[in-house]
């Protein structure tokens, strides 16, 4: 492997300084499950790897009336072992449980999944559906960016020099809300999504109508997509196959996938529609079982 130096700062300020001082040749590392192989095959060539796992803020996992805070280095297994997250932020549990196998999940973080900014990243659609906000630290202090605005292209995102992700903040969930993530892959596990869909819905007290919905798509464009229109089509509508179908069509309309060995454009668009149907229905089923949330 190419030569590089290693630092493991214990504070956000120290990490910002290290990243800034190295003029773009330093790279943050959380679980290393993307980064180490990328260095090995020569896709990236950092002079300094900044291990951010030893910073306390990056290991926070806190759920309360102000929502959910997930430190950027929290590995997947901590997320899917948390019963409250499973109940209230189910899409996140779905995503964390399918990123790689058990060994990968011991190390891989959701923060790394987002910052790697792959179009098929399995957690990003869930983050967007759940309305997560990225808290970014940098030389000018902290700033916040909605996750749907975070990725800008394959492997690209809004992070500037000296900046790194500190945590993901999720708004509190109410009663009668539910969420889900599913991906289509030819195997049962350990594969890259052909299409991935995340959805979060809020139903009214009767459980018969949508109050609001957020839908996001993975692997069908150069970056994960927020299907805002599709979600709006559900707001105020009755929970029925017909209304969900309309949302699925709207989602399919914004998909601009590529042809590759995993699927053709036509196939991916079709699967997008099918998965949106299934995922919204699953989110509805979960919403019907959610009698109380963490919202005050």
């Amino acid at each position: 492997m190419r030569d590089f130096d290693y630092a493991a700062p214990t504070s956000v300020a120290e990490a910002v300084k290290l990243l800034q001082d190295h003029n773009g040749s330093a790279r943050p590392m959380a679980g290393g499950t993307d980064l180490i192989d990328q260095v090995r095959v020569g896709r990236i060539s950092p002079d300094l790897v900044v291990d951010i796992k030893k910073i306390a803020e990056l290991n926070v996992l806190q759920i309360g009336s102000d929502g959910l805070h997930v430190g950027a280095a929290v590995p997947c297994y901590r997320l899917y072992h948390d019963a409250m997250i499973k109940d209230l932020y189910s899409a996140l549990t779905d995503s964390a449980s399918i990123i790689g196998g058990i060994q990968i999940q011991s190390r891989a973080s959701i923060g790394g999944n987002l910052c790697n900014s792959g179009p098929a990243a399995d957690s990003t659609p869930s983050l967007i559906a759940l309305g997560a906000v990225a808290v970014i630290a940098g030389p000018q202090g902290n700033r916040e960016v909605a996750v749907e605005d975070f990725c800008t292209g394959p492997g690209k995102n809004v992070l500037g020099r000296g900046e790194f992700l500190v945590e993901l903040k999720f708004p509190a969930r109410s009663a009668n809300s539910g969420s889900a993530y599913q991906r289509f892959i030819p195997r049962n596990e350990m594969d890259i999504a052909v299409v991935g869909v995340g959805a979060a819905v809020q139903l009214d007290a009767s459980g018969k109508n949508f109050v609001s919905a957020r839908i996001a798509l993975g692997a069908v464009a150069a970056k994960p997509l927020f299907a805002a229109e599709a979600g709006k089509l559900l707001a105020g509508q009755p929970v029925s196959v017909e209304t969900i179908q309309k949302a699925a069509e709207a989602a399919r309309a914004i998909a601009t996938p590529i042809d590759d060995m995993r699927g053709t454009v036509e196939f991916r668009k079709h699967v997008t529609g099918v998965l949106v149907m299934r995922v919204v229905q699953q989110a509805v089923e979960r919403a019907l079982k959610t009698k109380s949330g963490n919202a005050p």
């Binding site: 493991a8 290393g32 180490i36 790897v49 297994y77 060994q103 990968i104 011991s106 190390r107």
Partner: peptide, 16 residues
């Protein structure tokens, strides 16, 4: 096993 969790040691830096 690293601190009790199964990991693939090819994706762990020895310094870690």
């Amino acid at each position: 096993r690293l601190d009790g969790r199964p990991v693939v040691s090819c994706l762990v830096l020895a310094v870690e």
